[in-house]
């Protein structure tokens, strides 16, 4: 049994400790908002927050998440209110098919945490090098993260 905190709730997970975290989240814990895009650590669709930092859950074993606080896209909204980064993706139309979006939002939160409310477009584009989108051309994703970072800084 592996103890962890999932989206704010302490749980123990009954799964093989050498299973990939992404598979545990999706198959054992029902958090299917975490997507599997490439399975080779490149696309970022499986990003989750681990102790507040974005990581690729396809490249982490359950045992490595022992005792950690894991936040999936399902855990971002509070009391029915979208997280500012989620709201920004909606407002700026930062998605098309939506497959990469959970990973983009998690990466966006990491960018906002490290670079602050005034992060510029070039920095955002550079920091998104580990997230692939096959629809949008990234323009609105960058706009959404810029707005999300500003709104997070304003405590929205």
């Amino acid at each position: 049994m592996t103890p962890m905190t999932l989206n704010g709730t302490p749980i123990t997970v009954d799964a093989a400790p050498t299973e990939l975290l992404v598979n545990v989240l999706r198959d054992d814990l029902g958090k299917t908002g975490t997507h599997i895009g490439c399975d080779t650590s490149q696309c970022g669709a499986c990003n989750v927050l681990m102790n507040g930092e974005p990581v690729k859950s396809c490249t982490i074993l359950l045992a490595q998440a022992e005792g950690a606080a894991i936040t999936t896209v399902e855990g971002l909204a509070e009391g029915g209110k979208l997280h500012p980064m989620q709201a920004a993706f909606k407002e700026e139309h930062g998605l098309q098919c939506g497959f990469c979006t959970p990973g983009m939002i998690i990466a966006g939160i990491g960018i906002a945490e490290r670079h602050g409310a005034g992060v510029d477009d070039a920095t955002i584009a550079h920091e998104l090098e580990g997230n692939l989108c096959r629809c949008t051309g990234y323009v609105n994703i960058v706009k959404a993260i810029r707005k999300g970072a500003a709104d997070m800084g304003a405590g929205a």
Partner: peptide, 9 residues
């Protein structure tokens, strides 16, 4: 090296 997520690990 890699990307921000890779550098976190």
């Amino acid at each position: 090296i890699g990307d921000p997520q890779v550098r976190n690990r």
